[in-house]
Amino acid sequence: MPLDHADVKKIAHLARLDLSDERMGGIATDLTNILELVEQLSAVDTEGVVPMAHPLQMAQRLRSDEVTETNCRELFQSIAPQTENGLYLVPKVIE
């Protein structure tokens, strides 16, 4: 199923990627080619086959809900683009 500009625009919005109009055409072609490669899967009979989410079929390990790490906020925020009083700064969301 070939993807058109409108499809790519919608996907790019979901992925939060700012794609310029001049790139849309090339990307639509690339994505269509990749989906064509993937299309072979639809012909495979997978009736009754369990989806494989993990190669070793291991159960997810759980731990008790306890504090195990020390607070490293200052260290982690020292590499942030913009912070103030221990908070990450972003453009205003609520007026």
């Binding site: 990627l17 990749i34 993937v38 639809s42």
Partner: peptide, 25 residues
């Protein structure tokens, strides 16, 4: 973009779940 498409509403079963079944095979 491909991954976002494969996981988006209406396509998840046809792509991601299908691929995980084939992965088992």
């Amino acid at each position: 973009l491909i991954g976002t498409y494969a996981l988006s509403a209406g396509y998840y079963d046809a792509y991601y779940l299908k691929a995980q079944r084939v992965r088992h095979l």
